[in-house]
Amino acid sequence: MHLTQGQFSFLPPLTDEQISAQIRWALDHDWAVGVEFTDDPHPRNTYWDMWGMPMFDLRDPAAILYEINECRRAYPTRYIRVTAFDSTRGWEAPRMSYLVNRPEEEPGFSIVRQEGEGRHITYTTHSYATEQPPGERY
């Protein structure tokens, strides 16, 4: 199963050149680019680990691509995403977020049905990967 989260996720994986171009766009807008990684692919998981600091002081994609590659080297089997944070008043939110690395094997999600009162059923998704403890998932 190919995880679709964030921008460009229905496209084939971005090449480094395309990633650089996207970073360029973010930097041209003065957004701070950060690199994050996780091994919990649930769509509601907003708490990804940060790779270093958000790069407020960098002006060139090459430097950020370098950090992305360092992160890929350290965590080759995790999801890695690039976010661009807009600190402009009124926004103060990530304006871009896209995956740049994913595990080779993506087991996907199951649907969990919970029977409630009466004939009421609540549904939730469950990632097969999270059945293993953190760090052993992929």
Binding site: M55, D57, L58, R59, D60, A63, Y66
Partner: peptide, 8 residues
């Protein structure tokens, strides 16, 4: 420092 200088 090198990262800050990249592109320049």
């Amino acid at each position: 420092v090198l990262k800050r200088a990249m592109g320049g």
